[in-house]
């Protein structure tokens, strides 16, 4: 029995990675849920928006690295992030003016907007591939670890190492700040409240003198910020590959729906639910159980419920279970 090592192993392999991944999903899901609430459709291009934002940031990061600019221990990408957000915001607002606005004026059925977003998804996907290619891009610099496994072992004398990557720390800190700022904005500022009002009742918002076009523009800017931050954090934590971002669509939708579409709080909760279940179900608990089991009872097998290849199956399974029992999601959203 060695509970301390077991806890460290669990922290190292499950809790820290899942928290970071959960934060990334939550930021992604927040973007989806905002568009669902205000523009009233699920944006299929969201994964590709994240990829575009990350790409913009990467390009600026490379430029800064070329100039020799850096943030010391922190990744240069943080410095490039505002430029990435600005680039993405321009793209999204441009897309809105060129594509979505027409349908809004027509009061198009939301499902038509979903199809429109498919077209936008193709274009953004092609654009990202066109500009940066399909390969993996690594843009993480600065100090890689806040605590490396070796330092931790030397510090504590434990057998099990605990690695806390800079990217994970950054993800968690940034996510907390972004979410706090978003909630403050939505609940405390006039513009934020007008967005909620518009989401609640468009016609009445109009009668109150709220300008729909302004609300929509603010929404796209916020979504650009959320998507770019989520994309960059995911890219720093893992790596940047356009196709991976496209595939994030399922866990992100799952997070938003599990939490309750249209509910920002739900999006965050959903992100963590999905991330924790994905990682817990696909993690091989052999090591952890090995520390916990009394001598001689250590498991022989990997004690892995599902192979990591089935992580999508986990998000999907959780989603179905939630929808079957609580069709509006964990936090009462607008869906189903």
């Amino acid at each position: 029995m060695d509970p301390i090592n077991a806890i460290v192993a669990l922290l190292n392999f499950v809790i820290i990675p899942a928290t970071a991944y959960g934060a990334q999903l939550a930021l992604g899901a927040l973007g989806v849920t905002l568009i669902y609430g205000i523009l009233r459709f699920s944006n299929f291009a969201h994964g590709d928006t994240m990829a575009f934002g990350a790409m913009c940031t990467i390009l600026v990061t490379w430029l800064f690295q070329g100039w020799g600019l850096s943030l010391g221990v922190l990744p240069t990408a943080l410095l490039a992030l505002p430029f990435g957000i600005a680039g993405t915001a321009l793209l999204l607002i441009g897309t809105d003016r060129a594509v979505y606005r027409f349908y809004r004026k027509q009061k198009a059925a939301p499902v038509i907007l979903v199809i429109v977003s498919m077209g936008v998804m193709f274009i953004m996907n092609g654009l990202v591939r066109f500009i940066i290619g399909v390969d993996d891009q690594n843009f993480l610099d600065g100090e890689r670890f806040i605590i490396s496994a070796r330092t931790f072992r030397e510090m504590t004398g434990l057998q099990e190492g605990l690695a806390f990557k800079t990217s994970q720390g950054l993800t968690i800190v940034t996510a907390v700040m972004v979410v706090a700022a978003l909630f403050w904005f939505l609940n405390r500022t006039r513009t934020g409240k007008s967005m909620r009002a518009f989401s609640d009742n468009e016609d009445l918002a109009l009668l109150s003198g709220i300008n729909p076009e302004k609300v929509v523009t603010y929404t796209w800017i916020i979504v650009a910020g959320l998507a770019t931050i989520a994309g960059v954090l995911y890219g720093l934590d893992k790596s940047f590959k356009p196709f991976t971002y496209f595939q994030l669509l399922l866990p992100i939708f799952a997070s938003a729906i599990v939490g309750g579409l249209g509910s920002p709080l739900g999006a965050i909760a959903g992100g963590f639910v999905i991330a924790f279940s994905e990682i817990t179900v696909t993690y091989a608990f052999k090591k952890v159980l090995g520390y916990l089991a009394p001598g001689g009872w250590e498991p022989d097998s990997l004690v892995q419920l599902l192979s990591t290849d089935y992580k999508f199956a986990v998000s999907f399974g959780i989603l179905i279970i939630v929808l079957l029992f609580k069709p509006t999601g964990l936090f009462k959203g607008k869906s189903v």
């Binding site: 594509v99 038509i112 193709f122 092609g126 654009l127 591939r129 290619g133």
Partner: peptide, 19 residues
């Protein structure tokens, strides 16, 4: 990058027809 024109074109065609 010419190979990636394909996705762009498909998106464009979809949007143009829908519009």
């Amino acid at each position: 990058s010419a190979a990636h024109m394909r996705l762009l074109t498909m998106g464009l065609i979809l949007l143009l027809v829908l519009r």
